[in-house]
């Protein structure tokens, strides 16, 4: 590497800037919302009740792990066995990395504002952040969980215990909550940068043969989602928390899952 030439900024303490706008607002808001979400998700994980009612199953506890089969070997909440997957997917996500590196690690807190310099910066080259490179594996796992959440959303279209029996077709508020959630989660997951690479970004030539042309058409669609990755990341974070909250309220009898539409049964 050629000789380094130090600029003025490297000598300045944390938060030094000439910016006159309210640059603190963004990182503070993100840190606050993240922290609240983490507290809520942790509480719900260890609460270990009110996660299922009728055809509703909280996304925090899905896929459903048959509790009675686990009690002899696993005495904690089944959510612990599940939530590390979406948590790992979001923690290694390129958008969330930007958000928490700025808000929690202050590397940097905002553009043009002096960041934390208390250690020799290694970026994502050393433990633990080198594991960010495994984002695509978290994507694979999160996609499996997403498929299960779609299945759960489909279950809400039928009265409990009558899955795929169109005589018991129904649409409840819970159905809307679950479908909005899985659509937002899908837009977030399939706009992922790692998926964008795997589906076509890895290619240098999009016109070289039919498979490459097919990859291009997929890559263009993923790119459209990827352009709003930040939006989908936030919307899906709120929707998954709300879907869990809604399920908890229904399961604890605080709310009733209102049926909006129901196929009338003909009693023989």
């Amino acid at each position: 590497m050629t000789e380094a030439k130090t600029g003025e900024a490297a000598k300045k303490p944390l938060f030094t800037t000439q910016r006159t706008d309210n640059w603190q607002k963004g990182p503070l808001a993100i840190a606050t919302v993240f922290t609240l979400f983490i507290i809520y998700a942790t509480w719900r994980t260890f609460e270990n009740q009110y996660f299922e009612m009728g055809n509703l199953l909280s996304p925090f506890y899905s896929p459903k792990i048959e509790w009675h089969l686990w009690t002899k070997v696993w005495h904690l909440s089944p959510a612990i066995l599940i939530l590390w997957i979406p948590a790992g997917f979001r923690a290694t996500c390129y958008y969330y990395r930007k958000a928490y590196y700025r808000s929690y690690f202050m590397t940097p807190p905002a553009c043009g504002v002096s960041g934390y310099k208390g250690f020799q910066y290694q970026g994502e080259t050393k433990f633990p952040f080198v594991f960010q490179n495994l984002h695509r594996y978290m994507f694979y796992l999160a996609t499996l969980v997403l498929a299960v959440l779609w299945w759960d959303a489909l279950q809400t279209l039928f009265a409990a215990g009558h899955f795929f029996n169109f005589g018991f077709f129904q649409v409840s508020v819970g159905t809307l909550v679950y479908f909005v959630n899985v659509v937002l989660l899908s837009n977030y997951s399939f706009g992922c940068h790692a998926f964008r690479h795997l589906i076509g970004g890895r290619l240098d030539c999009f016109s070289c043969g039919e498979p490459a042309k097919t990859s291009l058409s997929f890559w263009e669609k993923v790119t459209k989602l990827n352009e709003h990755h930040q939006l989908w990341a936030w919307c899906s974070l709120f929707s998954v928390a709300f879907a869990d909250f809604y399920t908890r309220c229904v399961a604890s009898n605080a709310w009733t899952d209102q049926i909006l539409f129901q196929v009338q049964q003909v009693v023989q």
Binding site: M1, G7, T107, P108, C111, G115, Q120
Partner: peptide, 16 residues
């Protein structure tokens, strides 16, 4: 290059 914190704050011009 100027706003990149790796070069700006951390002065890692030796590595990045």
């Amino acid at each position: 290059q100027n706003v990149c914190h790796v070069l700006r704050d951390n002065d890692r011009k030796d590595a990045f």
